[in-house]
Design a protein around this nucleic acid. Structure first.
Length: 579
DNA sequence: CGTGCCGGGAC
DNA sequence: GTCCCGGCACG
């Protein structure tokens, strides 16, 4: 059972299961001579190292084939289909073959003249001439290797470092030279996340669905140098994937109507997990009806936002660097690192997320975030706006808000909160919470507003959630407005609060809160520092006030103080409540 | 536990 | 229209 995935960002990327892969291959001289290891699924990605075409687009013929480490497991022995497909795969004929029985093979009619940067040994592609390091025990009937031991089969072909290329237009990949879409976009019928332009062979009948493969990470990697991509594929992924090589992806996740994608989750899966967790006690008619409803249509997950993408990419790294295992602790670190990212770096993820959303909406026009509210969405008791006359809020904000320590800028043009003040088109000037549709931290009730100069903290503080301009702009020259790309920029974020001179507690104090309060964090102390070291130690003071923002009570502050002495740490919560 | 996004209730 | 809660996304 094999699955093909296509990157939502780069439709030309197909990926088959099981996850974990190995060898990098590249087509040769216009002819892709077939998978060196029959039966092994393939991942095909555009050759990022290949040059662009004169028109600026990447050559559609440039492809990099990465063969997975695991063979297909469900190949039916003696399957004529398999043999045929395999044969096709090995033949130089330019057939677009995507089969669930054999490795994915697709090659264009001719290769781009420009020399690929990826190096490989041509001999490996010679049919019937498997690399010596490969298992020779291929089933004579099917041509499929027997269940191998991945560690043993680890030939891979190093990708030479190359300059990162940005894919100008994802969809551009859909149409090869002949004008005949390699992966015609599927239409109608399918309703699955990112069914991106994959047409499967008529022989394809079923797809497996569930996978732990971190596709989002892969998408991100596609914009990185091939060396990194390669490392990612050969090290990161294998170390992350959950399924043992011999294990077939869960069957219950099978989706027969379309091409699977991690973003799609069949209700059954969800129910199973949730029920097993909670127990089967709660089974009411209400739930039953819910279940049935859910059964009807698969749950389409929300597209990942920028931070999520970042998390997925960096989590493994953080985990590796630290001894942490607890998700919460890791997330804290990730959160800080996120804020420590440079504007450009963040923009990268914002852009990525934007594309995800774009594609998501493109594929699911009717989709709404509402769909994700499994249970009682909308049924929640209607919240009542705290009728307590802004008392607590105001006070706390007065106390916490830096703007208050300073004469509030009585800018009449900014009588309202961020949204009203800057408008939708200047969200980059909004405060964090406002961007999240959360409570504005700048607004001071009854006092107009506290304006933060967009030029200084505003812009830096809030990286632009989206800027169409930077979309497909290559990293190289994309620094038009690098006002402050220096580490300094990071310090600006908390800056507004820095004015709060009334904050007696030294920065170190704040830090302790997280570290001390959590056992897990203790073990991660070093790691946290490591994580924080990205952030200049200049911005601590601001953290304190913000941390207590949510809780006006002074007790919290006291507790902070008490903790302060125990573990002096440079900084921490700085970014947190500020937003 | 972190941030981003968004529907929609409360104003 | 604005504000922002509540919920989901991930691990």
């Amino acid at each position: 059972m094999k699955v093909l995935f296509l990157s939502p960002l780069c439709p030309s990327v197909s990926l088959s299961l099981p996850p974990a892969m190995l060898a990098a291959k590249r087509q040769d001289g216009g002819l892709f001579k077939g998978p060196p290891y029959p039966g092994y699924p393939f991942i095909m990605i555009p050759d990022l190292t290949s040059p662009y075409l004169p028109n600026g687009s990447l050559s559609p013929t440039a492809r990099t084939y990465l063969q997975m480490k695991w063979p297909l497991l469900d190949v039916q022995a003696g399957s004529l289909q398999s043999r045929q497909a395999l044969k096709d795969a090995r033949s130089p004929s330019p057939a677009h073959i995507v089969s669930n029985k054999v490795p994915v093979v697709q090659h264009p009619h001719h290769v781009h003249p420009l020399t690929p940067l990826i190096t490989y040994s041509n001999e490996h592609f010679t049919p019937g001439n498997p690399p010596p390091h490969l298992p020779a025990d291929v089933d004579p009937k099917t041509g499929i290797p027997r269940p191998p031991h991945p560690p043993d089969i680890s030939p891979y072909y190093p990708l030479s470092p190359g300059t990162v290329g940005q894919i100008p237009h994802p969809l551009g990949w859909l149409v090869p030279q002949q004008g005949q879409p390699v992966y015609p976009i599927t239409t109608g019928g399918f309703r699955h996340p990112y069914p991106t332009a994959l047409t499967v062979n008529a022989s394809m009948s079923s797809f497996s669905l569930k996978t732990s493969f971190p596709f989002n990470l892969l998408w991100g990697k596609l914009h990185e140098p091939t060396t990194q991509l390669h490392s990612f594929l050969t090290h990161t992924i294998p170390s992350m994937h959950r399924f043992p090589p011999h294990m077939v992806p869960p069957h219950h996740s099978l989706h027969t109507t379309g091409i699977p994608h991690p973003a799609i989750v069949t209700p059954t899966v969800k129910q199973e997990s949730s029920q097993s967790d909670v127990g089967s006690l709660h089974s009411s008619k209400h739930q039953d009806s819910k279940k049935e409803e859910e059964k009807k249509k698969p749950h389409i997950k929300k597209p990942l936002n920028a931070f999520m993408l970042y998390m997925k990419e960096m989590r493994a790294k953080v985990v590796a660097e630290c001894t942490l295992k607890e998700s919460a602790a890791i997330n804290q670190i990730l959160g800080r690192r996120w804020h420590a990212l440079s504007r450009e770096e963040q923009a990268k993820y914002y852009e990525l997320a934007r594309k995800e959303r774009q594609l998501h909406m493109q594929l699911y026009p009717g989709w709404s975030a509402r769909d994700n509210y499994v249970g009682s969405y909308g049924k929640k008791k209607k919240r009542k706006r705290d009728k307590q006359p802004g008392e607590t809020n105001e006070h706390s904000e007065c106390f916490l808000n830096p703007c208050l320590s300073l004469p509030p800028i009585t800018d009449l043009s900014a009588p309202k909160k961020c949204r009203a003040r800057f408008g939708l088109d200047q969200q980059n000037n909004w405060c964090g919470p406002c961007r999240r549709k959360k409570k504005c931290v700048r607004y001071i009730q009854g006092e107009g507003s506290c304006v933060s100069p967009p030029s200084s903290d505003g812009s830096l503080l809030d990286s632009p959630p989206s800027s169409p301009n930077m979309l497909a702009s290559p990293p190289r020259d994309s620094k038009p407005q690098t006002e402050q790309t220096q580490p300094l920029s990071l310090t600006l974020k908390p800056d507004p609060l820095a004015h709060l001179s009334l904050m007696p507690p030294p920065s170190s104090l704040v830090l302790t809160e997280t570290a001390a309060s959590k056992p897990s964090a203790l073990s991660a102390t070093n790691c946290q520092n490591g994580a924080l070291d990205h952030q200049p130690a200049t911005l601590q003071p601001s953290a304190a006030p913000s941390s207590s923002l949510a809780q006006p009570s002074t007790s919290s502050l006291h507790s902070h103080n008490s903790l302060a002495g125990t573990q002096p740490q440079p900084l921490s919560l700085v970014t947190k409540s500020l937003e």
